[in-house]
Design a binder for these strands. Structure first.
Lengths: 206, 206
DNA sequence: TATAATGACATACGAGACGTATGTCGATGT
DNA sequence: ACATCGACATACGTCTCGTATGTCATTATA
């Protein structure tokens, strides 16, 4: 019966990841002392080096965890949408909302790229892109949007969404900015449609 | 006559910024030793702390220098374009090409945000946005693109361009990827036009 | 059941790197 | 000519990381 043993190990790893996630998310990767956040969960750097190799390895694990959560959340959103087009728009706005969370901003969007290199080289970040690409591909095959390169579009939209999140998060009036960003996104997406709807959004406009 | 004096000082500052820029651009901010790159130009950390306060202050100076160069280059591009719309597209592609340079990727796009906080909080990064916003505003006032929020659009496009640059830079075939990205950009921009050009047209490049 | 072996983790140590406090020396102003 | 100031160097302390080593419990084996 080697259950308790492996359970303890998994728990240790989970504790380390959780502690690091909290530290990275608050004070940032560079200012997070390994001695501090390991002792915060009753461990030392010995455990950390044993399980993750080095500080960077722990960051990778944290990023992977957050990425998995983001994937799951996006999947949940897209799964309960009826129309294809609406589902796509919903997923985009959900993605934008996630990118607003301070923990994600700091760990995934700022420290992650700085320490681990460009997100385009990570295995995970691509899952969102792939999912988006697949959606765009179906949309163009079904004649809903104009033909084009789905992956290229997905990457461009992804960048636009992430950047919009930063804009919102650092805006003096996040809610108003959020509305402007969402409207801008819808405007951009609308431009992709074969038969654009005359949205009341910019008809009622500014 | 205190010219030579101030000139020496300016030269010292320039040497520090240049040395830091080279170090940050190659090994990255975190792994750039202040002792190393100051001694590379015949100085010590004393000069650095005297002029820039700390390592972060030096990074700010480096980022400001690069940003100023980017602004100047963009201005040069847009100034010699005849048609408004073509000028805008040219500026976008020039921006994308700049974002491809490894030094800009590393210092401005990765380490900068991680160390200095989100670019949206910098004073500089906004100049590109402002310029783009102004362009979009004129384009919509002149009835070339649909009405909309110019700043929001500018920020979204800015994010798309930066992200596209990362995609290209980390692609196994950068040239082919670049073509796909540019085409995607043109597709997106085309969607903004009041009277989009016929679809196959912009695939062939105009 | 006794023993060997493995692995999970802690502890001890050394190496840089940063920031500060202090010192020096030349230039500047009167 | 002298006092001041500022540009820069040097010395020191502190923190953090990574490695090398040690210990102890668990597991496998006989």
């Amino acid at each position: 019966m080697h259950r308790p043993r492996s359970e303890m190990i998994a728990q240790t790893r989970a504790k380390l990841v959780a502690a690091a996630r909290k530290a990275f998310g608050t004070v940032g990767y560079a200012d997070a002392s390994m001695d501090d956040f390991t002792s915060a969960v009753g461990l030392t750097r010995g455990a950390l080096y044993h399980h993750f190799g080095d500080k960077k390895g722990l960051l990778e694990a944290v990023v992977a965890e957050i990425d998995a959560e983001m994937d799951a959340r996006l999947l949940a959103v897209s799964s309960r949408s009826q129309s294809q087009w609406k589902g796509f728009v919903d997923e985009c706005t959900a993605y934008l909302e996630m990118a607003l969370e301070p923990e994600i901003q700091r760990i995934v969007l700022r420290d992650g790229p700085s320490v681990l290199g460009d997100p385009a080289t990570w295995p995970n970040q691509n899952k969102c892109i792939l999912s988006m690409s697949a959606n765009l591909k179906r949309l163009s095959e079904d004649g809903i949007i104009r033909p084009g390169d789905p992956e290229a579009l997905a990457r461009l939209l992804n960048g636009a969404l992430l950047h919009a999140a930063s804009w919102i998060a650092n805006s003096p009036e996040p809610e108003a900015t959020s509305r402007r960003a969402v409207e801008g996104i819808k405007d951009l997406l609308n431009g992709l449609l074969c038969f654009p709807v005359a949205t009341p959004a910019f008809a009622s406009g500014r």
